[in-house]
Design a protein around this nucleic acid. Structure first.
Lengths: 145, 145
DNA sequence: TGCTATGCTCGACGAAATGGACAAGACCAT
DNA sequence: ATGGTCTTGTCCATTTCGTCGAGCATAGCA
């Protein structure tokens, strides 16, 4: 499905998505038209979902991060889901099996702000919040193998 | 700290980090050297941590995702932290306040694989695993405001 | 053996990035 | 006010890069 060359290319792009085709093609030992074509196919196949930029939330003033587990009260599941989607401070959220229904990541500037955000959920769900102290594993890819 | 122009630029780059300087500069209404200079500064200030590529784990064969909460047994904290860092299937992990000490995201191909991975933690920590059913909020940025 | 698919290279041309010289505005101390 | 300087911008010439068309090599297969 993905050959070694594709994986090499992806590995390089993860570290620098703005590398020029030329430099990329030199690193992997192909001509730039072939690399260009491979990129096109990787995008087409949705292996590459997007080229994007990794921004430090702290640089935007969000010095604090929390992980929130959310268990909607009976009958509130869809309302809570919508509520979560409409809170832009929640930057990712998964719906999961188990007692908790949603697990999300929240960026905020102060405890007051956190309190305000959680209050909006409190009427419709039980929440359990853990403040992030550090990130032993930064976002990375699972093995390409 | 970040002016409106920077935020506009970041907003565009989040959606397409490989956009040409020229097109980017047209969209924001500056010349390309100035945009280039702004990018340089944004990288220098570490607002932009990296230009990267968003890859679908499913395209690499990881059809399943779980969120794992890990509570090391007494005295095992550092060993567990190292263990987590050395498990490449864990693609992000935070150290948090509260009963759980670590919360991580895990990509895997089969229940057997999940079982194997959790077994490696089981001797040194209690774990609590939630399988991801869907992702109501895909990775996004908190408000730039 | 010969047909076709795929995936590559090469070279040329137009497009884009870069670097240098310089201008406009904000701010400050004199 | 005057002049210095710092920041952020433009413009333009040069260099670098991406894309396109044409053509070649290999693998799979009737």
């Amino acid at each position: 499905m993905l050959d070694e060359m594709d994986k090499t290319i992806l590995g390089i792009l993860i570290e620098d998505a703005r590398i020029s085709l030329k430099e990329l093609s030199q690193k992997v030992g192909l001509s730039s038209p072939s690399v260009s074509e491979r990129l096109r196919r990787l995008e087409e196949k949705k292996v590459i979902r997007a080229f994007t930029v990794d921004i430090d939330p702290a640089a935007l003033g969000y010095n604090l991060t929390a992980i929130v587990r959310v268990r909607p009260l009976p009958g509130m599941l869809h309302i809570v889901e919508r509520l979560i989607q409409e809170m832009p401070e929640i930057t990712e959220c998964d719906k999961v099996t188990g007692d908790d229904c949603f697990i999300g990541k929240l960026h905020f500037r102060s405890m007051e702000q956190l309190d305000g955000l959680l209050d909006r959920l409190a009427e419709k769900a039980e929440t359990n919040t853990s403040i992030v102290k550090s990130s032993p594993v930064k976002r990375r890819l699972p093995p390409l193998g």
